[in-house]
């Protein structure tokens, strides 16, 4: 707008330092005001407070799994049997579509913790309950488009491009795990 100066019949040039300073301050002010109106759409404090949850895993028997809701998504916590661990460890990594060693996917080898969302198109795979179809590799099976996951949650067969993601977590003590 300062370009439209043809009507300025004043004695001095209008684009001097003073006017620039005013305009700059105005621009800074508008920018500063914009931030709160943008930031209000970010997760609020009560949402963030639930972004970290603690889960008691003492009641999960070997061979069983529980599903907890975390950040609006299901998290699978499976207490693996020795056979399952063995199976996950002995796979030749070269055979995997998304190669990753089992050791890199767990902190304690008997507890496998995964975000239970199929990496294909976001369905929830089966395999949590005792009677569920677990797929050809004994892990999970996504009923939407037939992706098979193994006992480490890695993709083995089907259209999904990647392994089930491992959420950020840590063991607070032997029976409690903190997600997030």
């Amino acid at each position: 707008m300062a370009e439209n100066a043809q009507t300025g019949d004043g004695g001095e040039t209008r684009r001097d330092f003073l006017h620039l300073a005013t305009a700059a301050m105005g621009a800074v002010g508008v920018g500063a005001v914009a931030w709160p109106f943008i930031d209000q759409m970010n997760p609020a404090k009560d949402v963030l407070a639930l972004a970290t949850i603690e889960v008691n895993i003492s009641a999960i028997q070997e061979g069983q799994a529980i599903t907890v809701s975390w950040r609006g998504k299901p998290v699978f916590i499976r207490h693996r049997t020795a056979d399952e661990i063995e199976e996950a460890r002995t796979v030749d990594l070269d055979d995997l579509p998304d190669p990753q060693a089992d050791g890199d996917r767990v902190t304690k080898e008997n507890f496998l913790i995964l975000v239970g969302v199929c990496t294909h198109l976001g369905c929830i795979p089966l395999g949590q309950k005792t009677g569920d179809v677990k797929g050809e590799f004994g892990g999970w099976f996504c009923p939407c488009h037939g992706s098979h996951y193994d006992t480490s949650g890695r993709i083995r067969k089907g259209p999904a491009p990647a392994n089930l993601p491992v959420p950020e977590y840590e063991f607070v003590d032997d029976t409690t795990v903190r997600l997030g």
Partner: peptide, 20 residues
């Protein structure tokens, strides 16, 4: 504080522009 500075600058700008 920001607004005081801004308003002061705007006032000075205004005086200058209106001088003629």
């Amino acid at each position: 504080i920001f607004l005081l500075v801004f308003t002061g600058l705007a006032y000075a700008s205004m005086k200058k522009i209106w001088a003629d």
